[in-house]
Simulated scan of single mutants.
Amino acid sequence: MLKLSQPSEPFWLDVLPGVRIRFRPITVASMLVAREVVGHVFRGEDQDDIGARANIALVRELARRGIMEWEGIGDTEGQPIPVTREAIDLLMENWPAYDQIDNLYVAPALARDAEKNASSSSSGGTSAEAPNTATPAA
């Protein structure tokens, strides 16, 4: 059963100790744009580590589109910095932050998508094996 209980309003997540980030809910439009970015990774010439690079591209793009504001993130001097595309990209280079954003923000949206797909109508046809009607070769 498809459960329509995803967030509709922005929400805060505690990403790391002392770091809170306010996110927009992941929308269909956000996911489609992120998938397009992933498509560029797959169409690129360099096929080394393609799965990892595709995952990074997906999480990074969803973070770029979703992060609205934050607390506890600063520059090298410890001064708070505003949310910008460049600042989000720097944040996503920090492994603990990337991992938490992936686990707390992206993974639940992907799980909802998987739940929806599992609840979809069956495609036409049957999964049962058809009887063999070919005559054996002599």
Rank of each mutant, 00 (worst) to 15 (best):
L13E: 15
L4K: 10
R60P: 00
E36R: 09
E77S: 12
V33H: 08
R64H: 15
T27M: 10
Q6S: 03
A97H: 01
E69C: 03
D49M: 04
E93R: 13
A54W: 13
P96D: 11
I67W: 05
A128Y: 01
I81G: 05
A54D: 05
A52D: 12
S123P: 12
E36V: 00
M31P: 00
V41M: 05
R22A: 13
I56W: 03
F42S: 08
N103I: 07
G74T: 09
A137H: 06
L104R: 09
Y98D: 11
K3N: 01
I88V: 15
N94C: 10
N132F: 14
F11I: 01
K3F: 00
A87E: 09
A107T: 05
P136T: 06
G44V: 08
Q6H: 00
H40F: 10
P96F: 12
I26C: 05
T27P: 14
D113M: 09
T27Q: 08
V33L: 07
L32T: 08
P96S: 12
G51C: 02
L104Q: 15
R65S: 13
S123I: 02
Q79G: 04
I26T: 11
M68Y: 02
A63T: 02
E71T: 03
L16V: 13
Q6T: 02
F11A: 03
T126K: 11
N132D: 15
V28I: 06
E9G: 04
T133W: 14
H40D: 13
M1H: 14
T133N: 15
R35V: 00
D49W: 02
M92C: 06
A111Y: 00
Q47N: 09
E115S: 01
T84I: 08
D14Y: 04
I50N: 01
E86H: 01
T133Q: 14
M31S: 03
T133A: 12
N103D: 11
E61C: 07
G51M: 02
M31Y: 05
T84Y: 10
V59F: 03
G44I: 11
E71M: 06
D89M: 06
N132L: 13
Y105M: 14
E69G: 11
M68G: 06
A29R: 12
P136L: 11
E129G: 05
T126S: 15
E71P: 00
D89Q: 11
F23T: 08
G18C: 12
R20P: 09
D49C: 03
E61M: 07
M68K: 07
V15K: 07
A118Y: 11
S122F: 01
M68V: 14
D89H: 07
N55R: 13
G74M: 06
E61Y: 03
L58P: 15
A138S: 06
V106T: 10
A109I: 07
R35E: 14
R65D: 04
R60H: 07
E71Y: 05
I26M: 08
R85G: 14
A57Q: 05
